[in-house]
């Protein structure tokens, strides 16, 4: 327990809150790498995932990629890429993108898959085009699962970004790695506490966002064929009335 006291003393020391090795700088780097990689991964994976989810083609490949990626050791990926492209920012970003893609992909296609086929058929029956079905039915209904996938990707990347410093790219992990090398236990513990706090905070934020994006009228985990009394007359009467008065 004594070490925890020392670690918090390290965190409270104003010296560690300023400069190029200060906590705000390192936190900024950490968040920047993570955000950039997840955005790049999303740009690549979401369209592909949507295509797979909508057409149902290539599903088995997507499942094997997203399942098999779990076995991929992130530390190995980052060192391998650092060796081939050299020390700096490229190596960590490329490896984080590789590590983030499977989760986002899984979130995108499983979000589409989770949409009841009857709902999709109904949308087709009322004359929606395939694009409209994707944009107005499958995307909103699949959004919670997509956010879930992005959430896993963010957590994976934030965790792996701890190792970015190992290949010379800073981040909160730099306290851990320099602490390890110098056998400075309070320092590495302080770095660990920062990373853990960041990860837990992001997890909480994402779980809240995931709940917020559930479309109105859809309650996750519960059958939604019960319509609330308040919504019903509104839905039936509101539109024709305004049109009639015009």
């Amino acid at each position: 327990m004594n070490f925890f006291v020392e670690a918090f003393a390290w965190l409270a020391d104003p010296v560690h809150w300023v400069g190029a090795d200060g906590i705000p700088t390192r936190l900024g780097q950490h968040l920047w790498y993570s955000a950039l990689s997840v955005v790049i991964a999303s740009v690549i994976a979401i369209p592909v995932g949507y295509l797979i989810g909508h057409t149902g083609r290539g599903r088995s490949i997507a499942v094997s990629i997203s399942g098999g990626a779990r076995a991929l050791p992130s530390f190995g990926v980052i060192t391998l890429i650092a060796l081939s492209v050299g020390i700096g920012l490229t190596a960590p970003i490329v490896s984080f993108v590789i590590l983030a893609i499977p989760s986002v992909l899984a979130g995108a296609y499983s979000g589409f898959e989770a949409v009841d086929r009857k709902t999709v058929d109904a949308a087709r029956a009322v004359g929606m085009t395939e694009w409209q079905i994707m944009a107005k039915v499958e995307m909103p209904l699949g959004l919670p699962l997509l956010i879930g996938g992005i959430r896993s990707a963010v957590l994976q990347v934030v965790a792996t970004a701890t190792l970015a410093t190992f290949v010379g790219a800073g981040g909160l992990g730099s306290y851990i790695i320099t602490g390890l090398r110098a056998n400075d236990y309070p320092k590495m513990l302080a770095g660990s506490i920062l990373v853990i706090a960041l990860a837990v905070a992001l997890e909480v934020v994402f779980s809240i966002v995931q709940r917020l994006v559930v479309p109105a009228g859809v309650t996750a985990g519960r059958p939604s064929d019960t319509r609330s009394k308040a919504a019903r007359p509104g839905a039936v009467t509101a539109t024709p009335l305004t049109k009639g008065t015009q």
């Binding site: 990626a69 879930g148 896993s152």
Partner: peptide
């Protein structure tokens, strides 16, 4: 031998 999709395994959001 079916790989389990990670999101489905972790997050069970059932949509109607």
């Amino acid at each position: 031998l079916k790989p389990v999709a990670p999101v489905q395994a972790r997050q069970k959001v059932v949509l109607p």
